[in-house]
Design a protein around this nucleic acid. Structure first.
Lengths: 210, 210
DNA sequence: GGATATCTGTAACGATCGCTACAAATATGC
DNA sequence: GCATATTTGTAGCGATCGTTACAGATATCC
């Protein structure tokens, strides 16, 4: 066992407390005093454990990812692409609406900071979002090989479409939309999914004038 | 004419300079020194003209709205709901991708601040976004009365769907997505629009487990 | 029971935050 | 020309920012 005075707080609990602050107020909007107050510790403990505010945010983000990994695995395990899409969008809609009051509405990877005085945090969050998108894309590419998805379809664009929907749901949730309202949107987005992936998106229409 | 020493800067130009700072860095990420440096004026001039940082942001947001009013009017004037949807999403995709380098990528109403240390700015931006959504909803309600949209369809949900897409495109654009990538997503979102609005979204599916 | 190592709370660091007091500068009204 | 009104640049306000020095507290090692 390690020598020295032991830590007086639970690292995981402290990260959860910090997560809700970053989630609700964003990276720049969360001050050190906000964080230490919520975590129930003093600045030196925070810095000894996490190094800096940005280090704390990284640790929070990793914990956030861990929590969502189970959800993503469940989504990707769905047997058909249509069911993957449905599980993903309906799951996101349920998650980002503040159902249990355990978390703020929206998503840390969006609320955390789309912009800021420097680009570190926005880029970090963008990388994490891109990672989720890559998972969906890989699943769709696999489906195209196995024949579940038409050869003419574009797995990358379909994955991006789902991510755009998910991020849009986050924005709407942060503004106070209800789970019912978000699921109505998800249903619309999914309504024609089977027909769409069977035929593939009509690429020609992308060249029409906006 | 007014007495006293005249102003040395153009209010509109100053607002445009401030707009790009708020757009790129968000409300909280934009410091007074960032703003005054970009605007080419000193703090007292800013405060005499706009009252406060929040006052400046409000003025910037109003100017932003004015710029987008022409676009919204053009969208709403499209003859059919399908063309309204297409004009809106393709127009947004073109706008939020940093085409001309005249503006930062994304949308001020999203990048400006989804979260923050206090809720004033996020709520202000949410109201402005809701205003655009209300315009689309009114257009769809009118279309339902005139028969362009099926009686079984839900104008509010359709308008919300378009807003979710638009906001999602903003998030993706802020992370560096190209206009081509965004338009591919828009095309997917629009691909089945005519069939959808003819039949109306199937409400029953909203009650399926996520 | 020291010696050592780590964590704790207090208290404060320099830098920056949003904002403003003040006097010089520059216009109009008469 | 003189009084009045408004804007300008300088310079700095109190508050808060993220961060850390320091000494006391509490554990293990031997």
């Amino acid at each position: 066992m390690r020598t020295g005075r032991p830590r007086c707080f639970c690292k995981e609990e402290a990260l959860d407390k910090a997560m809700t602050v970053f989630w609700r107020q964003g990276y720049e909007g969360a001050s050190l005093s906000d964080l230490t107050r919520a975590m129930g510790i003093n600045p030196p403990s925070l810095y000894a454990c996490f190094g800096s505010k940005e280090g704390l945010f990284k640790a929070v983000l990793e914990r956030y990812d861990q929590r969502r990994d189970a959800f993503m695995a469940q989504v990707l395990a769905a047997p058909t692409v249509a069911e993957v899409a449905q599980a993903y969008l309906m799951g996101v809609a349920a998650f980002v609406a503040d159902t249990g009051a355990r978390n703020p509405p929206g998503c840390l990877m969006v609320q955390g900071g789309l912009s800021g005085s420097d680009k570190d945090i926005p880029e970090m969050l963008a990388r994490h979002r891109a990672e989720k998108e890559a998972m969906l894309r890989a699943r769709f590419e696999q489906a195209r090989k196995s024949g579940d998805l038409a050869k003419t379809s574009d797995p990358a664009a379909l994955a991006r479409y789902l991510m755009v929907m998910a991020n849009g749901l986050c924005v709407q949730a942060a503004a106070g939309a209800s789970e019912k309202e978000l699921k109505e949107v998800a249903v619309i987005a999914l309504a024609n999914w089977p027909a769409m992936v069977a035929a593939g998106p009509k690429k020609a229409r992308a060249k029409e004038p906006a």
